[in-house]
């Protein structure tokens, strides 16, 4: 049963991911990306990580993609952008990425052929994830915190300059 569900979710994730890069309208590409993330959340759940699945939906599909959509709406792309995208997606553009992806694919098949199933099939609780984050992976959490703080200070700095210019403009 789980295997069937896994293959369904995995094929949805693969198909939508391909659709993401072949769409010429930005908003359609984003909708497919959201569906792809939801499919990956289902895979996480099947692998025994319900907490990771919930966070995938709440954070990736629910918050980060909203910001992407926000930017697309701000840019207000029209038909000219669609034509431009279509020009960029020429057949010869696919050669380089395809070769690199093929190498990765063979590598993955080689690894999977040699090792048994990667998951233990035991559900990981939210508590365990939290404990690991603040013991084993503490350094990573702190580094991510630094990065976020830097982004916060940076955006505040940029926004302040813009606001000052605006204020002078208004007088």
């Amino acid at each position: 049963m789980e295997v069937v569900l896994f293959y369904i979710a995995a094929s949805i994730a693969l198909i939508t991911s391909i659709l993401v890069i072949t769409r010429t309208t930005a908003s359609h590409a984003l909708i497919y990306l959201i569906v792809s993330l939801l499919a990956i959340a289902v895979i996480f759940y099947l692998l025994g990580a319900p907490f990771a699945a919930a966070l995938e939906v709440v954070i990736y599909a629910g918050a980060i993609m909203v910001l992407f959509l926000f930017v697309v709406m701000m840019l207000n792309l029209g038909p000219s952008q669609v034509a431009q995208e279509r020009r960029w997606l020429e057949p010869r553009m696919w050669v380089g990425p395809s070769i690199l992806t093929l190498i990765l694919f063979f590598e993955m098949v080689y690894i999977l052929a040699g090792t048994p199933a990667l998951t233990s099939g035991v559900a990981v609780s939210a508590k365990e994830v939290g404990e690991r984050l603040f013991t084993t992976y503490l350094l990573g959490v702190e580094l991510a915190g630094f990065l976020l703080l830097a982004a916060l200070v940076g955006s505040y700095h940029l926004g302040r300059r813009y606001m000052r210019a605006r204020r002078e403009e208004i007088g």
């Binding site: 959201i34 919930a54 909203v66």
Partner: peptide, 10 residues
């Protein structure tokens, strides 16, 4: 619940 409310935004 949080996931569903954040999806409703779309």
């Amino acid at each position: 619940f949080l996931a569903m409310t954040s999806l409703a935004v779309y």
